[in-house]
Simulated scan of single mutants.
Amino acid sequence: MRHEVMFYTKGPEEQVNCKVCPRLCNIAPGKRGFCRVRENVGGTLYAVNYAECSSYALDPIEKKPLYHFYPGQLILSLGTVGCNLRCGFCQNWQIAQGTPQTTRLEPEQAVELALQQRERGYPCVGLAYTYSEPFMWYEYVYDTARLAHDAGLKNVLVTNGYVNEQPLQTLLPYIDAMNIDVKAFTDDFYRSTCAGRLEPVLRTVETVYGQCHMEITTLLVTGLNDSPEEIKRLVDWLAGIDPNIPLHFSRYFPNYKLDLPPTSEETMKMAKNLARQQLRYVYLGNVPQLAAADTTCPGCGSILINRQGYQTQIGELGGGVCLECGKKIPVIM
Rank of each mutant, 00 (worst) to 15 (best):
M1Y: 05
E4H: 01
K10M: 05
G11L: 15
P12L: 08
E13T: 00
Q15C: 00
V20W: 07
P22T: 11
R23Q: 04
C25K: 02
I27S: 06
P29V: 06
G30F: 02
F34Y: 13
R38M: 08
N40F: 01
G43V: 05
A47E: 13
N49W: 03
N49R: 06
A51N: 08
C53K: 04
Y56V: 03
L58A: 13
L58D: 11
L58W: 08
P60A: 06
E62R: 12
E62M: 08
K63V: 02
K63E: 01
F69H: 12
F69M: 14
F69P: 08
F69S: 14
Q73A: 15
G79Y: 13
T80H: 12
V81L: 13
C83P: 04
R86H: 08
C87H: 03
F89T: 03
W93Q: 09
I95R: 06
G98I: 10
T103L: 14
R104N: 03
E112D: 14
L113K: 02
A114N: 11
A114D: 11
Q116W: 00
E119F: 00
R120S: 00
R120Y: 00
G121F: 03
C124E: 07
V125T: 13
G126P: 04
T130V: 12
E133I: 04
P134G: 12
Y140Q: 13
L147D: 10
V158S: 02
V158N: 08
T159H: 02
N160I: 07
G161I: 12
P173V: 01
I175M: 09
A177I: 00
N179S: 01
I180E: 05
V182R: 03
V182T: 06
K183Y: 13
T186Y: 09
T186R: 07
T186S: 15
D187Y: 02
S192A: 07
T193K: 09
C194V: 09
C194K: 01
L198C: 04
E199I: 00
E199S: 09
P200V: 09
L202D: 11
R203S: 06
T207L: 12
T207W: 14
T207A: 09
V208I: 15
Y209M: 01
Q211T: 12
Q211G: 04
Q211N: 11
C212G: 04
C212T: 10
E215D: 11
L219D: 01
V221E: 04
V221Y: 06
T222I: 02
G223F: 05
G223A: 05
N225F: 07
N225H: 09
E229I: 05
L234V: 03
W237I: 03
D242K: 05
N244R: 12
N244T: 13
L247Q: 14
L247V: 15
H248C: 05
Y252L: 10
D259G: 01
P261R: 08
T263E: 02
S264K: 12
M270I: 05
N273I: 00
L274T: 08
Q278M: 08
Q278P: 00
Y281P: 07
Y283G: 07
P288G: 04
T296C: 12
T296Q: 12
T296K: 13
G301I: 14
I303Q: 03
I303H: 01
L304G: 10
L304A: 10
G309Q: 08
G309T: 08
Q313A: 15
Q313V: 15
Q313R: 15
G318A: 11
L323R: 14
E324Q: 13
E324T: 12
C325N: 10
K327C: 10
P330Q: 09
M333N: 10
